[in-house]
């Protein structure tokens, strides 16, 4: 693999809340090469949204502590001031937000919302920016972009709005695109369109993408590697194939079993994960998944397992009682 675009080392994000410190992300390390897509998967509450925003440096500026390191193309995000980070936002790294209903300014014409980045960040003239904005609208597959240019977000459907959000993110040709649940707020039929669009654009524009989702189906065919998160920590990571077929962590298996698959017989009962995600304010010293895990032993409840390598290269997991190697193919 060539030069690393993103290197994350031991990254932690802790919020100061009324109930005490809340460790939303703890000790996360991974890297991402150029033109690569990585998936971050977990239930709601696993810290994946916080992680993606922390990597970008977009966390709120009060009541939050970030430690560790996140370097985007050599730029250290952790500890950088808002003014310094502003230089990489949009041009080096951009984000596609979860809900296109709330992430577009409702009282600003969509053309202006795209223009703005071009004019402020790239110093384009008004006319050039408009021409480029219409190009971008066309690129993300919006029909009659010239008319849409002067529409308000309220006049567009959810899918169209998400395309606009993508156009805004792409405006300054970032090298790294963070997509935080980009399809959660959309109809199922639109979801695939948006994901395919993202995939196609990544290839054409030579970007790296971090795809954050709770839906394993989304990442299955579109990522080279997957990070599985639970309670703010990485519990398993590896190539997409390894995570799907050679996973060792019981949580990964539970997550796979709980997502519907086309290959299932109709009326197959989905297996749900018992219990609820843990309260991050009251984490035990042990494995955070232990209370919901059927393989849990005393050790699991007392000592937290660290990530350890599995047999395949680049595949690691955090578990005291991992599933045996090569036993998983049968279950999936």
């Amino acid at each position: 693999m060539s030069e690393k675009l993103l290197v994350v080392k031991d990254l932690s994000t802790t919020f100061a809340t009324a109930g005490g410190p809340l460790p939303a992300v703890g000790g996360v390390s991974f890297d991402l090469g150029e033109n690569e897509t990585i998936g971050i998967v977990g239930e709601s509450g696993s810290g994946k949204t916080v992680l993606s925003r922390t990597i970008m440096g977009l966390q709120p500026r009060t009541n939050v502590t970030v430690t560790g390191s996140a370097q985007i193309d050599g730029f250290e995000v952790v500890g950088a001031s808002e003014n310094e980070k502003r230089k990489i936002w949009g041009t080096e790294v951009a984000m596609i937000f979860q809900d296109p209903m709330t992430s577009l300014n409702p009282v600003m014409r969509i053309g202006k919302q795209i223009d703005e980045s071009l004019r402020v960040r790239l110093g384009m003239s008004k006319a050039d920016a408009k021409a480029r904005a219409i190009e971008l609208l066309e690129l993300v597959g919006i029909p009659s972009p010239t008319e849409r240019y002067s529409a308000y977000p309220g006049q567009l459907s959810g899918g169209m709005r998400q395309r606009v959000v993508i156009a805004i993110a792409l405006a300054c040709s970032p090298k790294l695109l963070m997509a935080d649940e980009p399809t959660t707020g959309l109809d199922v039929t639109i979801q695939a369109q948006i994901l395919n669009l993202l995939d196609e654009l990544r290839g054409r524009l030579k970007m790296s993408v971090i795809l954050v989702t709770h839906d394993l189906g989304v990442v299955a065919t579109r990522t080279s590697r997957i990070i599985v998160m639970y309670a703010g920590r990485i519990v398993e990571t590896g190539t997409t194939r390894d995570v799907f077929y050679h996973h060792r962590m019981p949580y990964t298996r539970a997550l796979l079993e709980s997502s519907p698959k086309v290959s299932n017989h109709s009326h197959t009962r989905l297996i749900t994960i018992p219990g609820r995600p843990p309260n991050l304010l009251k984490l035990s010293d042990g494995c955070s998944f232990a209370p919901r895990c059927k393989f849990a032993t005393d050790q699991c409840h007392l000592v937290r397992p660290e990530l350890q390598p599995s047999v395949e290269p680049g595949h690691s997991f955090a578990c005291w009682n991992p599933l045996p190697v090569n036993q998983n193919e049968a279950t999936t």
């Binding site: 919020f15 809340t17 109930g19 809340l22 939303a24 709601s44 509450g45 949204t49 916080v50 925003r53 977009l58 966390q59 709120p60 009541n63 609820r276 995600p277 843990p278 309260n279 991050l280 304010l281």
Partner: peptide
């Protein structure tokens, strides 16, 4: 973000 966080961790009392 904290709003999102509170929703994400609906268990945070």
């Amino acid at each position: 973000l904290e709003q999102a966080l509170i929703e994400e961790y609906s268990i945070v009392e």
